[in-house]
């Protein structure tokens, strides 16, 4: 692997190759933002992984009662999947140099994501009206916590997308749009994946999840 090749070089020996052969030193905006996003997804992964560990540990405790999932969550999941599909389509269109259509689909994705957030809030309301507050049981506490944190990340994604779209309109540059769509699509798919994992954990919470797997 290249990392091992890197760290096994001997920098104290003189290297008479031209400097740009040794390391070109060229980083494009595209590659820095892409790596930045990947690293950020790493941070998010750490966050939700730790939360999941805490969740799984709690399901084994005596006081745990399974969560009564609002059926609305299935619909919300479908909306989020749809949002991911439209953004993927937008990515493909942008790759084919069709920025106008791509932009339109991006807006659709953002609207669907907003719909997902509203759906999540309705699910909250449903449980709250039935008296299932966060304090009722750890399963509900985790449900509110996990959906809130996931929702905040979705909200952040939408905010960035709106700003990026605004800039894409003003600059009207095909490359800007291509880059925006690519980054947003990656983020969208990843948050969908996180949601699916969280939802699956919530569905499997009768007793220890570990037993079920």
């Amino acid at each position: 692997m290249s990392i091992f090749r890197h760290i096994s070089t001997k920098p104290w020996l003189l290297d008479e190759r031209p400097a740009n052969v040794i390391h070109p030193g060229l980083a494009s905006r595209t590659s820095t933002t892409k790596s930045g996003l990947r690293l950020f997804l790493g941070v998010i992964t750490a966050l939700f992984a730790l939360l999941s560990v805490a969740y799984i540990e709690n399901t084994t405790l005596a006081y745990w009662t399974p969560l009564l999932e609002p059926q609305l969550l299935w619909l919300n999941t479908a909306v989020l999947v749809l949002s991911s599909l439209t953004i993927q389509r937008a990515r493909n269109l942008a790759a084919k140099d069709l920025p106008v259509q791509a932009r339109r689909l991006l807006i659709t994705s953002a609207v669907l994501a907003v719909a997902f957030l509203f759906g999540q809030m309705f699910a909250w309301l449903e449980l709250l009206q039935l008296g299932y507050f966060a304090s009722v049981n750890a399963s509900y506490a985790f449900y509110y916590l996990m959906t809130a944190l996931h929702g905040l990340h979705i909200f952040g994604g939408i905010t960035v997308l709106v700003f990026a779209l605004d800039r894409a309109y003003r600059e009207d540059n095909v490359d800007t749009i291509k880059r925006t769509v690519q980054l947003c699509a990656t983020y969208w798919h990843y948050l969908l994946l996180i949601w699916v994992v969280l939802f699956a954990m919530m569905l499997m919470d009768n007793g220890s999840i570990l037993d079920k797997i």
Binding site: H6, I7, T9, P11, A19, N20, I22, H23, P24, G25, L26, A27, S31, T32, S35, G36, L39, F40, V43
Partner: peptide
């Protein structure tokens, strides 16, 4: 910290000038 940290890591990884390998 997260906002700053993303910067520090990506700057080290990608913004090194010509000839500056990680081991230099």
């Amino acid at each position: 910290f997260t906002m700053g940290g993303l910067n520090y890591v990506i700057t080290v990884l990608q913004a090194r000038t010509e000839g500056m390998t990680m081991m230099r």
